[in-house]
């Protein structure tokens, strides 16, 4: 997938002539300080933001196939239904035939470890459980590209590990994961390649091992050292 994007909010560039290709393989992790444009990039890739100029292409075609993408927002909204109801809704939205839904619900809830909570109102789940349910909802779309915006922000270590395990399992099935994170440890654990964004610009896009061992740019070095704040 190729993202070539320029997004302006008034005079200010949120994404500044950024060009990025996501290729199949292990997760791509977006890092960068607050306001770097990570969330904006994910939304643009999902097709949720109009580009001021540029394009998002998919497998060489101009128009991305929308049903092959899914996104997990940083603070996902829980539909006022049961956990199973949330997944069922996403399955219906994705056009999964009624007859197959029950089995898929079971499968997806098991994948995110929520099979015991199928009947529980989604809004009564804990923060980590809600995040996993939202992940199940995103996976209901059977995406080839899964965009995750800070999927483990504000979760405790156990909940974070649960999310990471699911991400690994999903990626192992061949789903391309693109995720943003603040957590360098998480980036190290999950990333196949790392994208460093800063002020709407792409500074570095390198394999993870190389990024952490020999960062090319000054900003990358500062970021890894925890000194690149804005």
């Amino acid at each position: 997938m190729l993202v070539e994007a320029r997004i302006l909010a008034g005079e200010v560039a949120i994404l500044d002539g950024l060009s990025l290709t996501f290729s199949a393989g292990p997760p791509t992790v977006l890092i960068g300080p607050n306001g770097a444009g990570k969330t904006t990039l994910l939304r643009a890739a999902m097709g949720l933001l109009p580009l001021t100029s540029g394009r998002v292409t998919w497998g060489g075609r101009e128009q991305a196939a929308p049903d092959r993408r899914a996104i997990l927002f940083q603070r996902p909204a829980m539909l006022r239904r049961s956990a199973a109801g949330n997944v069922r809704y996403a399955l219906a939205a994705a056009g999964v035939p009624r007859a197959q839904r029950a089995a898929r619900i079971e499968e997806l809830l098991a994948l995110v470890g929520l099979e015991k909570f199928a009947a529980r109102p989604a809004r009564r789940l804990s923060g980590g459980e809600q995040q996993r349910l939202a992940l199940a909802r995103a996976l209901a779309r059977n995406p080839a590209l899964l965009l995750l915006d800070e999927p483990a922000a504000s979760l405790d270590p156990a909940a974070t590990k649960a999310i990471e395990d699911i991400v690994r399992a999903v990626a192992a099935r061949g789903v391309k994961v693109v995720m943003s994170t603040h957590d360098l440890g998480q980036a190290k654990r999950l990333a196949g390649d790392v994208v460093l964004l800063h002020r709407g610009r792409l500074l570095e896009h390198t394999p993870a091992a190389q990024f952490f061992a020999q960062p090319r740019t000054q900003e990358a070095r500062k970021f890894i050292a925890g000194e690149l704040l804005v």
Binding site: L48, D67, P76, A94
Partner: peptide
């Protein structure tokens, strides 16, 4: 306000 993005992402 709460559902907007979620529903947009599901193509509703």
């Amino acid at each position: 306000v709460e559902y907007r993005e979620e529903l947009a992402a599901m193509n509703i």
